[in-house]
Structure formats: structure tokens, C-alpha cells
């Protein structure tokens, strides 16, 4: 076997797509891998340009890189992520029938051995890597979602609140629209636990969380478990009046759900106290100031009899 024949056999056998184009972009080499995955024998493609063979590739990025290899002597890579399967290649008969193209990583290099120049295109099947990464991404998203949920109540947890509130605070500063915060506390929850036991206490927290979450209508509103028996609602683009309405609905809904609370000095059922703070944040304001204000208002609500909504502006000015 002569060296040239041996070399041709090797190129035909490698597990990579190999195409060589001449200076007029005509196919002069098309290996076995290309024949199999494009379902086109060399005889059908020889002497034709890529845009004659695959009209949807005309003036695409592959062609641009071929031109820069042939005219400017430059090598290029085309990644799978930024170029969705440029060549109509298929990993299996099944994929071909379903029109699912092979995921491709492509390298285009000039062959400088002689003038006029040739251009080498190498194509690698990265379908497996792509599906592996999709799996990784999906898993990571699931993990992230879990890391933002409060295990007991199924609503957002403190970590999620901290991040979300920070984002919304900065957005409010940019848009100069008011941001409201409602801090909610279950009245005499310690007495509830002592009287009914911790398992019933957990059920109570779940029920309250569900009722509170049901009162929030807009997608941007967020209810989170702040800690223990405290909940917090972030209400973007909401003024004090709007926040007061939301908090009042929450207080009423909890009262209406008539969860018995025999040991409560405030009412015969579970009730909540809520503190509201509203602000159009300025340049120097820190997110913590709004939380402190809401906390202050909540303290006031508890001090003045519980089962009520208090806003800092209305009561404390």
C-alpha cells in the first residue's frame, strides 16, 4: 500500500468529520465519517461548494470562516453553543427521521503547504457532552430552587428573602417607585405551641403560610418565612396605602380561617400582627433601614393589643 493510499484510508477511518475545500471553496475531500453522517457519498459532493450542497449555509458563519481561512490564512473555531448545528448531520437514522441534528463543534484551518491554499474543516460530534451539561444544568436549577424554599411551609426562605429584597430595593432606587415591606408575626405562638404541642404548631405555621401566600396576587410580590413564627411580604411598586390594604386582607383572612387558639389572650382563634414600612429609597439608604422600620411598626402593633396592622408613618410620626 503506498503512503498516499494509507493516508487516505486513515482519514477515511478517523472518528471526526473531515472536509477539504479548494481555493474556490469546492469540496476536494470528504471522509467516511461525513459520508455516513450526511448520508452523501463523496461522488455526490465532489467539486461542489458548501452553499450549493446546503443552501441554508450560504453566507453563514461557517462560510465566513472558510473565506477567512482561504483569503486571510486565519484559523477559526465554531462552538456548539453559539452555532446551533450548522451542518445537516445526524447521529442516527432515528434522529434523521425526526430531524434532530447532531450537535457539532467545528474547526476551520487553512492548509498552507502549497498555493493556492486549501481549507480544512473538522467536525466533532458533541451531542453527548451537550446532553450531559443539560442534565447538570437541570440538576443545579433544582438544587437552587430547593435551597430557596422553607422546608416546613414550602414558601420562600430567609435566604431567598435576603436576595430578593436586596434586588427589589436597588430596583426601587433606580425606578424611584415606592417599595413596601410587611412583617407579620403570629400572636402568642409560644402559648400555641405550649398548649397544642410542636406538631400542631408546625401545622399552624403551614396553614398560616398558605393563607398569607394566597393573598398575594402579583407575580413580583414575595412572601417568605422570616424566622420562627415571623413572615415577611415584599411588595414592589406599592405605596403605603396599597401595603396597608394587603396587610389588612392578610389579617382578615387569618381571622376568618378560625384556627382555634384556646390559650391566646387576644382572641379565641389564631391572629396575626403586622408592621408595614414603605420607602422610595434614596442613594444613601441601606435595605436594612426598611426592615428596621417594619420591625419597629410590628413592635408597636404588638404593644398596642395585637391582631392589628400598624405602619410606621401613620402611628409613630
Amino acid at each position: 500500500m503506498s503512503d498516499a493510499v494509507l493516508l487516505a484510508r486513515v482519514i477515511d477511518s478517523v472518528n471526526v468529520g473531515v472536509i477539504v475545500l479548494d481555493s474556490a471553496q469546492r469540496v476536494v475531500l470528504w471522509n467516511g465519517w461525513m459520508e455516513r453522517h450526511a448520508q452523501l457519498p463523496l461522488a455526490d459532493v465532489e467539486g461542489k461548494t458548501l452553499s450549493e450542497l446546503f443552501p441554508d449555509m450560504a453566507n453563514g458563519r461557517v462560510q465566513q470562516t472558510v473565506v477567512s481561512a482561504l483569503t486571510a490564512n486565519l484559523s477559526s473555531v465554531l462552538s456548539q453553543s453559539l452555532n446551533k448545528a450548522p451542518f445537516p448531520l445526524f447521529s442516527s437514522v432515528n434522529d434523521r427521521e425526526n430531524g434532530v441534528r447532531m450537535q457539532q463543534a467545528i474547526q476551520v484551518t487553512p492548509i498552507v503547504a502549497q498555493q493556492p491554499r486549501y481549507c480544512l474543516i473538522q467536525i466533532t460530534d458533541v451531542t453527548l457532552s451537550v446532553s450531559r451539561e443539560k442534565l447538570l444544568r437541570d440538576q443545579a436549577l433544582v438544587l437552587r430552587r430547593h435551597s430557596y424554599l422553607d422546608v416546613l411551609t414550602g414558601i420562600a426562605n430567609r435566604r431567598r428573602f435576603d436576595e430578593y429584597f436586596d434586588e427589589e430595593f436597588r430596583r426601587a432606587r433606580r425606578t424611584t417607585l415606592p417599595l413596601s415591606l410587611v412583617l407579620i408575626d403570629i400572636d402568642h405562638f409560644k402559648l400555641y405551641n405550649d398548649y397544642y404541642g410542636h406538631q400542631a404548631g408546625d401545622q399552624c405555621l403551614k396553614q398560616v403560610a398558605e393563607t398569607l401566600a394566597g393573598t398575594l396576587q402579583r407575580p413580583a410580590d414575595l412572601l417568605a418565612r422570616y424566622g420562627g413564627e415571623e413572615f415577611v411580604a415584599v411588595l414592589p411598586e406599592t405605596d403605603l396605602e396599597g401595603a396597608r390594604r394587603v396587610a389588612e386582607v392578610m389579617r382578615t383572612k387569618i381571622a376568618e380561617s378560625q384556627l382555634p387558639h384556646a390559650s391566646s389572650p387576644t382572641a379565641s382563634h389564631v391572629s396575626i400582627s403586622a408592621g408595614i414600612a414603605t420607602k422610595i429609597p434614596g442613594c444613601g439608604d441601606a435595605p436594612t433601614t426598611l426592615i428596621e422600620d417594619a420591625d419597629h411598626a410590628l413592635y408597636h402593633a404588638k404593644k398596642t393589643g395585637r391582631n392589628r396592622v400598624v405602619s410606621l408613618e401613620s402611628e409613630l410620626r
Binding site: S76, V77, S79, Q80, S81, L82, A105, V130, E133
Partner: peptide
């Protein structure tokens, strides 16, 4: 990731 490295390489 591997595919993102490839994209970075292309950029």
C-alpha cells in the same frame, strides 16, 4: 462548563 469554554474560545 466544557461547552461554555468552547463558546468563550470562539468569542
Amino acid at each position: 462548563t466544557e461547552m461554555e469554554q468552547e463558546a468563550m474560545t470562539e468569542i
